[in-house]
Design a protein around this nucleic acid. Structure first.
Length: 500
RNA sequence: GGCGACGUGGCCAAGUGGCAAGGCAGGGGCCUGCAAAGCCCUUAUCCCCGGUUCGAAUCCGGGCGUCGCCUCCA
């Protein structure tokens, strides 16, 4: 079994073989910290978080590097607008970025360098490029000469001359070629600046990724990731400057995530049609948003909308119920003769098949949509088993149910979809139940859990007496404060959901 | 204009040569005092036209449509 990945560089799926067996060195372009990140950024970071988690789950030792671009034109512009130092803008949104990543259950990078911490090695790379004739200096600016690198365009499948025929290339008479890009920019008054052999200035955007990845991972490293809109010019330029500087290949596998769209249009800060990740997460739980995004392959465009979020809430609910049902059944008293051998074999077989399918799907270029399908298939098998045998389980059945529950949790965990709430012990019941219990069950104490028990007892009595009005008053009353009662063969099950 | 991707049931979506996953929504049935949860059943000429093949959603050619990159962008 091997992992296959789609490599933008070769335009096909290839078997993934890291440079060093058992270890993976990966780099993912991080944000420019001039604003809160939007859900399109979030999707890309989610993609690579899942790829990383999966590689770790498959036994690889993964070193994951992601930069933070904290010096850049956009940050400078933002600082000017607000009349504050650029460093303050960068600091504010660096913190916001890290918080958003934590909230979105994205694991922290192994290393997360900031551009401003890497100025020295960036200058060193520019010096290398000037020395070996791939870069030239004009009035304190340093440009990379694309004509000096014959392979320029190999990642994006472009030809320099085709690019030139497009009308949208800046004409800058100081450049030898319109496609030449800045490695180092002379500082204008009021801008952040560092001393360099070419005068005070700051690094060009593409440079930091080349320098950091080489410093933290060495070249060539295994996986370079980012959004597909970075293929050109950003990643093309990284390749050019890195390979020209080191004489070695830069990255072995280039993985690019598809764009997130709103109404079938790319969402981007420049189009203004963006939703901030933190705003979405304020309204929808992280597992719901992750589930929604992962139900589409990472390279495909993904149309995002409130309707789809609401659908994902329902899908997520089904997943929670799968685990909730298993958890309830396997923690209940077992005393029956148990399920039939046929049913046990069917469920055990379904678990094996689902695990195999999950691995096969993820091995195939991280097909999370197919992998999630495998998880749902466990649910159908498990629910079918329970619908037939829940009222007559034996000890061996319990083990099977534990296996099923653990498998669902494990596989979803690989996708970073946390479902702890499905097995929560309802210990944090709201105090409102006490008043309800007093009113409907004559409860006089002050303990929420006892109050619920009193209410369930009262309902049980009412049901025995066929006093449906009284029984439903309990259920409806609890529902109003977020506590759902579901009757099962093992008695009523209580499910409290604080978020409503 | 150049380069590239995509078009699968009402909606979303996996599937790159061999009986069309999965989710959401809808309909019917079962279970339930009624519910909830769940189970079972149910909906596809895979954009169109040609071609290759014993066999095509899948490969090739053409068409139509949508999107992305070519400028800062995840």
């Amino acid at each position: 079994m091997s992992i296959r990945v789609y490599n933008t560089l070769t335009r096909r799926k290839e078997e993934f073989e890291p440079r060093e067996p058992g270890k993976v060195a990966m780099y993912v372009c991080g944000p420019t910290v001039y604003n809160h990140i939007h859900i399109g950024n979030g999707r890309t970071f989610l993609t690579f978080d899942v790829i990383r988690r999966y590689l770790v789950w498959r036994g690889f030792d993964v070193r994951f590097v992601q930069n933070i671009t904290d010096v850049d034109d956009k940050i400078i512009n933002r600082a000017k607008e607000e009349g504050i130092p650029a460093a303050d803008v960068a600091r504010t949104y660096t913190h916001a970025f890290r918080k958003a990543m934590d909230d979105f259950a994205i694991e922290r990078p192994t290393v997360q360098p900031k551009a401003t911490e890497m100025i020295e090695p960036m200058i060193a790379m520019v010096e290398r490029l000037v020395e070996n004739g791939h870069a030239y200096v004009v009035d304190g600016d340093v440009y990379f000469s694309v004509r000096s690198f014959p392979e320029y365009g190999k990642l994006s499948g472009r030809d320099i001359d085709d690019l030139l025929s497009g009308a949208r290339v800046d004409v800058d008479t100081r450049k030898q070629d319109p496609l030449d890009f800045a490695l180092w920019k002379a500082a204008k008054p009021g801008e952040p600046h560092w001393p360099s052999p070419w005068g005070e200035g700051r690094p060009g955007w593409h440079l930091e990724c080349s320098v950091m990845s080489e410093a933290e991972l060495g070249v060539p490293f295994d996986i370079h990731g980012g959004g597909s809109d970075l293929v050109f010019p950003h990643h093309e330029n990284e390749i050019a400057q890195s390979e020209a500087a080191t004489g070695k290949p830069f990255a072995r596998y280039w993985l690019h995530g598809g764009m997130l769209q709103i109404n079938a249009e790319k969402m981007s800060k420049s189009l203004g049609n963006f939703m901030l990740l933190r705003d979405v997460l304020a309204q929808y739980p992280t597992p719901v948003v992750r589930l929604l995004m992962l139900q589409t392959h990472y390279r495909s465009p993904l149309d995002f909308s409130p309707d789809r979020l609401d659908e994902a809430v329902s899908s997520h609910e089904r997943i929670l119920n799968i685990v909730r049902n298993l958890h309830w059944a396997r923690t209940a008293e077992v005393s029956g003769e148990g399920a039939t051998d046929e049913s046990r074999v069917a469920l055990a077989g379904a678990l094996e098949e689902a695990r195999a399918k999950f691995v096969a799907e993820m091995d195939d270029d991280f097909n999370t949509a197919g992998a999630i399908g495998a998880v749902f298939e466990i649910g159908r098998a498990a629910n079918a088993f329970l619908s037939e045998h829940q009222s007559d389980l034996a000890e061996v059945d319990r083990e099977l149910l534990v296996n099923a529950e653990n498998l669902v949790i494990e596989l979803l965990g690989v996708l970073g979809i946390e479902i702890a709430e499905a097995t929560r012990d309802n210990s944090d019941l709201p105090p409102d139940v006490i008043g309800l219990a007093e009113q409907l069950a004559g409860y006089t104490g002050t303990d929420s859990a006892e109050a619920v028990k009193a209410l369930l007892a009262a309902r049980s009595v009412a049901r025995t007496e066929k006093n449906w009005a009284a029984a439903d008053a309990v259920r409806d009353g609890l529902m109003l404060i977020g506590i759902a009662i579901e009757d099962t063969p093992q008695g009523p099950r209580v499910n409290y959901r604080p978020r409503g």
